[in-house]
């Protein structure tokens, strides 16, 4: 660890051990990794995009039913989780900064904080899912829904349409949670390696790319929160 940190201070005439054989310069390697990560995120946009498309279509078709079903969600869970994720995004930014400044302990600490915040998010999500189970709002044989369209209190909601809302709710938040779990696992590995001194100002690409991934997952939630929890409450 000590040698690694020393190497960062001395201008390195020797080739960086992290430079892979098929790259000519470190800059080339770093730019390749960064572009690769951004392309991966572009892929992720389209991956979630399929579900956003389904949401948009059914929200258009079953507007009132979606509004009613949306009201059953607890805004506070959603808002708290948004805040938790935003905090974790900040800790990721600080982790990258610590890596850039060669601060091994700070880097590890911020990564651990990120993991903890990720777990808090997943915990809150778990509580929400549990409530859905108790209220029979999980799509499937036991699904039951009674409610009226918000703007037309005399109009009953078609439970099948509400079930589609909850199918999409579980698909979207479930896929998001799966990404969170992968992210937590990723940061767990990185935290161990960071503690062992694998990263320095010379080489912190994995931290940076994992950070980009985490911010992306945050952005997905930034959209899921209003779409699922907020926008149909009055109509």
């Amino acid at each position: 660890m000590a040698t690694n940190e020393a190497a960062a201070i001395v201008p390195h005439e020797e080739p960086n051990p992290a430079l892979l054989h098929h790259f000519v310069t470190e800059e080339q390697q770093k730019n390749a990794a960064s572009l690769g990560m951004w392309l991966f995120l572009a892929q992720e946009v389209m991956f979630f995009g399929g579900m956003f498309c389904a949401y948009l279509v059914y929200r258009y078709k079953y507007f009132g039913d979606f509004g009613s079903a949306s009201q059953t969600l607890n805004i506070w869970y959603g808002a708290i989780n948004t805040a938790v994720l935003l905090c974790s995004s900040l800790t990721v930014v600080l982790a990258v900064r610590a890596a850039q400044l060669n601060k091994r302990k700070a880097l590890t600490m911020w990564l651990v904080f990120t993991i903890l915040l990720g777990l808090v998010f997943l915990g809150v999500k778990g509580i929400e899912y549990k409530e859905k189970f108790e209220n029979h709002h999980v799509p499937g044989p036991s699904f039951a829904y009674h409610g009226t369209v918000p703007s037309h209190p005399d109009q009953q909601v078609n439970p099948r349409h509400a079930e589609i809302y909850f199918s999409l709710y579980f698909a979207m938040t479930g896929m998001h949670a799966l990404h969170m779990i992968i992210g937590v696992g990723l940061f767990g590995t990185l935290a161990v390696w960071a503690w062992r001194g694998k990263y320095s100002a010379n080489y912190y690409t994995p931290i940076e790319n994992a950070g980009l991934y985490w911010h992306f997952v945050d952005i997905v939630w930034i959209y899921l929160f209003p779409l699922l929890y907020l926008i149909d409450r009055h109509r």
């Binding site: 201008p11 390195h12 005439e13 020797e14 080739p15 960086n16 051990p17 430079l19 892979l20 054989h21 098929h22 790259f23 000519v24 310069t25 470190e26 800059e27 770093k30 900064r97 850039q100 400044l101 100002a201 010379n202």
Partner: peptide, 18 residues
Amino acid sequence: MTEHSNASQNTATPHEHI
């Protein structure tokens, strides 16, 4: 791993935004 890399072309990492 680095036997092929051309050391003379090694430049320091460009200034990243901190």
